[in-house]
Design a protein around this nucleic acid. Structure first.
Lengths: 262, 262
DNA sequence: TCCTTTATAGTCGTTCTGACCATAAAGGAG
DNA sequence: CTCCTTTATGGTCAGAACGACTATAAAGGA
């Protein structure tokens, strides 16, 4: 049967829109080629680098199941929305953060195990998101609370959100190698030291400063110097030059994690 | 609202399971936090290398819309299935290929634009799949016909399948660089020449044979020699040694496409 | 006025890469 | 049987890239 549409023998069953409860089973008399209704949600693994640590945005659940447990922000996709639109809307609703323009959103994958939600059949499109110094979330919408938590400092999350979060972290780490994604963690203007800190924080490894600098500057389109800028404020050492993100999307050759080198 | 479950104010609306027709709009009196039903499908971009060309598995549509047009194989996810399970089942149904054990299946991403299907709201989980010398498809299930077509030799596909196919090709090409994925195109035992041909076919570029060989053999866990094998049949030149896939999953350092080198 | 801290420049030896050339071992044409 | 073509495999060599490391510059704090 073909893809995104029910064929002739597969008309939309108005009176057949069975909502499976619990572990769904094909209902009796159900045409396996007919439209079966699912709930579609989005889940977001939102990362930021604050205070030199990798932080994740979590919300506290108010209702059962998993009441009181931390979970990834997310929610239902509305009939007129794409998953991407729903992701931005839900994030804004649950955190009270209105300016999501600087947020990098990227589809991770879709989680569709039949038993991933104990109550009903839910398919969830997961996103990985990165943002520079996002403000403290307010906890709106249906989230009891919303907080930044350092990655790895919390227990088991609700549903399969531990898996989603781990997948997202792995994906982000891998993408830093061959894309300019790291600049999404930073404000429009940044120093090479800050860029290096992003890599070190996400990868959890220390990098050699002169070598990192040489590599970044040798990659065309990764960063470009800000015309007249040097930074003075707060720094204890020599002021660093300011850079902004370049026009390249991919890094060639890639900036590999030290671990991979054996 | 949280992810994979409706909260207290979001009970499953039995009489509210509106199936949006056409460009869906939020129905009047619809609680935006309630469960909204979607049809969930899978679409598969299945690649293989045959006769030195990259081939894609396509099916011909029998019904409107897009009747007579070629499309990617796929179909509805059943209530008790994950998207991965549905993908294998649909592929077997539509092609008559029973042995899908050697097939590499990998989630690409989910396409959820509200207007991607002219008839109803369909969210599709797309997969990229690779297989060694798969048999001629029989065209069963709801597919009028099923055929291998050389990539790039066909016109516009149905729905947004052109985009899905292009995304899949790009993903496969990128993954060849840093993973052992190429062996998924080949039978259990293969020569280095065949492995090189996979890279050349997918990337569309010629590679230097001695250099390719040196690189592959220098990467630990990529391939390992078959104890007592040399190949004689059919070849016009010197018989090549046989190799099988190694245990490594990732390639470090990666095998980069020549284009990226500038 | 040190001392610490951070940024930046440069060195040096190893490894990797791309562009080659050379040889080995098969089948086919004459 | 003898070239000739084809494919596999082994090797060279210069330049680029990389990791480890040293040195200098410019700020703030003790």
């Amino acid at each position: 049967m073909n893809s995104s549409v029910p064929e002739g023998d597969a008309t939309v069953p108005e009176g057949n829109a069975v909502v499976p409860e619990g572990n769904a089973v094909v209902p009796e008399g159900y045409d396996p080629h007919a439209f079966a209704p699912f709930a579609v949600t989005v889940d977001l693994a939102v990362f930021t680098v604050r205070d030199g640590a990798l932080q994740v945005l979590l919300v506290e659940r108010g209702q059962e199941p998993y009441a009181g447990r931390w979970a990834l922000p997310g929610g239902f996709v509305l009939p007129a929305e794409s998953a991407e639109t729903a992701a931005r809307r839900e994030l804004a609703e649950e955190t009270g953060i209105s300016d999501l323009s600087g947020l990098h959103l990227e589809q991770l994958r879709t989680y569709s195990e039949p038993d991933r939600d104990p109550r009903m059949r839910v398919v969830s499109v997961a996103f990985a998101a990165l943002g520079p110094g996002l403000p403290e979330p307010r906890g709106g919408g249906d989230a009891a609370r919303a907080e930044w938590r350092p990655y790895g400092t919390f227990g088991a999350l609700a549903f399969d959100h531990d898996v989603i979060l781990a997948d997202a972290h792995e994906r982000i780490g891998a993408k830093l190698e061959y894309s300019c994604l790291a600049t999404s963690f930073l404000p429009p203007e940044f120093t090479l030291g800050e860029l290096q800190q992003v890599y070190e924080t996400v990868w959890g490894t220390a990098l050699d400063r002169p070598n990192f600098r040489r590599k970044v500057l040798a990659t065309p389109g990764f960063v470009e110097p800000v015309p007249g800028g040097a930074r003075l404020t707060g720094g204890r050492g020599k002021p660093a030059a300011l850079y902004r993100a370049g026009t390249a999307g991919a890094l060639h050759p890639p900036l590999l994690r030290p671990e991979g080198r054996l």
